[in-house]
Amino acid sequence: MLYNVFFGILLTCSFLCLYRVGRGPTAPDRTVAIDILGIVVVGFCAVLSLMTGKDFYMNVAIAWALLSFIGTLALAKHLAGRGFDE
């Protein structure tokens, strides 16, 4: 029951991030929202691994954090280099 509340809060966070991804007036706004979404997913994995007691969800969390970091760095590099407006 309590885990459902936790998942509800995390889902609300994800939808707020998705609102910013869809709405964001400039490209950096979207990049920020995607970065934050990656960290929220790490929280999801942590709660899920505590709920089921399986520790491979934590491996998923670590891999997800690192991959989202690399993606964000690539997007930021692209922003710094070319300078596109929307």
């Binding site: 400039t26 490209a27 950096p28 990049t31 920020v32 970065d35 960290i39 790490v42 942590a46 520790d55 934590m58 491996n59 969390a61 670590i62 954090a65 690192l66 970091f69 964000t72 760095l73 997007l75 930021a76 590099k77 692209h78 922003l79 710094a80 070319r82 300078g83 596109f84 407006d85």
Partner: peptide, 28 residues
């Protein structure tokens, strides 16, 4: 593993923020 994940997040999150801020400012 949760501890390792915590250390990773504490390192990568400010770095990503720094990169996005610099990219945003340079892209105008």
């Amino acid at each position: 593993k949760a501890l390792v994940c915590m250390i990773f997040i504490l390192i990568i999150s400010p770095t990503a923020a720094h990169a996005i801020a610099r990219g945003a400012h340079l892209s105008g």
